[in-house]
């Protein structure tokens, strides 16, 4: 009897869970779904009042117009695509390498100043990068990297989030494992890439998600002037924003296209993320 009651309670709980999640999930997913649907609406449906959620006559017109627009740009459109892909790959890889190299000794080596460096990492997490933009420009101009690809890449090295996350996760690797590798004669470099990094794979995959998304969406900020090294988001917002109402459909099409790669990347790496965050938070 009591088992039956228990089952009933469990079923009621499940139904409540579903209802609540659907409700909240709607808030999360609707804007996305809406923007996808907007991308398939013909121009005359975009601005009807009252607005309709679904397209009555779905069309690929926005996409084909977007491609027409892109073929009319002064710099070949493929160049922007190339720039963004290059920046995403190089930026993500650089970020992870620098973060791993810094995190490993902080977690598993002893050297003077180790505590200080880790404190610096934690403190710099509190800052948002945007407020330092002008002084950063001055430093970059001293380095002579304004208006080069390095202006995209080098700041990736200094992102503190990666170092923090990897350090927290590497601390969980048993010391015995590292010691064993040292006794067997592996150098620190080899231990880092052959032992430590495979052990914290979920952590660096999470970092890769964030870095991919950050670099993929990077606009060419005030550090870049030459049109040929500007990025895809910049190009798309230039194309679609000039006379914004007229190009609304194309803007939605562009946004949907831009969303696809990060989401694919996220889905590929997603299963690892929850695990990583656990270590980051608890072992403060």
């Amino acid at each position: 009897m009591s088992k039956l009651r228990r089952n009933k309670v469990a079923i009621a709980g499940d139904i409540t869970t579903y209802i609540l999640l659907l409700l909240y999930g709607a808030f999360m997913a609707l804007p996305l779904i809406y923007s996808v649907i907007q991308a398939f609406k013909p121009y005359n449906e975009l601005f009807i009042f009252p607005p309709r959620f679904f397209a009555r006559q779905p069309t690929l017109g926005n996409f084909s117009q977007l491609f027409d627009l892109t073929s009319s740009t002064w710099v070949p459109f493929s160049r922007y695509v190339f720039n963004t892909i290059l920046n995403t790959v190089v930026g993500t890889v650089l970020h992870i390498i620098a973060a791993a190299m810094c995190a490993y000794p902080l977690a598993k080596n002893n050297f003077p100043g180790k505590k200080l460096i880790f404190n610096v990492v934690v403190w710099s997490l509190l800052f948002s990068g945007g407020v330092l933009e002008i002084p950063v420009y001055l430093v970059m101009s001293t380095l002579g990297i304004i208006d080069t690809y390095f202006a995209y890449w080098l700041p990736e090295i200094a992102v503190a989030m990666g170092t923090f996350l990897l350090k927290q996760n590497m601390s969980e690797i048993p010391d015995a494992m590292i010691e064993a590798a040292r006794i067997d004669g592996a150098g620190e470099w080899k231990i880092l890439w052959r032992i430590a990094m495979p052990a914290v794979k979920p952590a660096w995959l999470t970092l890769a998600i964030f870095a991919f998304q950050r670099n993929w969406n990077a606009t060419s900020s005030s550090y870049i002037y030459t049109e040929t090294i500007k990025t895809l988001p910049t190009a798309l917002s230039q194309i679609t924003a000039t006379g914004s109402v007229a190009r609304a459909g194309e803007a939605y099409a562009a946004s949907v296209l831009m969303l696809v790669p990060p989401i694919i990347f996220f889905i590929l790496a997603q299963s690892s993320t929850v695990k990583t965050m656990a270590h980051a938070g608890i072992k403060g």
Partner: peptide
């Protein structure tokens, strides 16, 4: 070696932060 490993990040931090 440990300190050398942290150098790239440290230099980046000095430059851009």
């Amino acid at each position: 070696v440990g300190f050398m490993f942290t150098l790239p990040w440290l230099i980046g931090f000095l430059m851009f932060f």
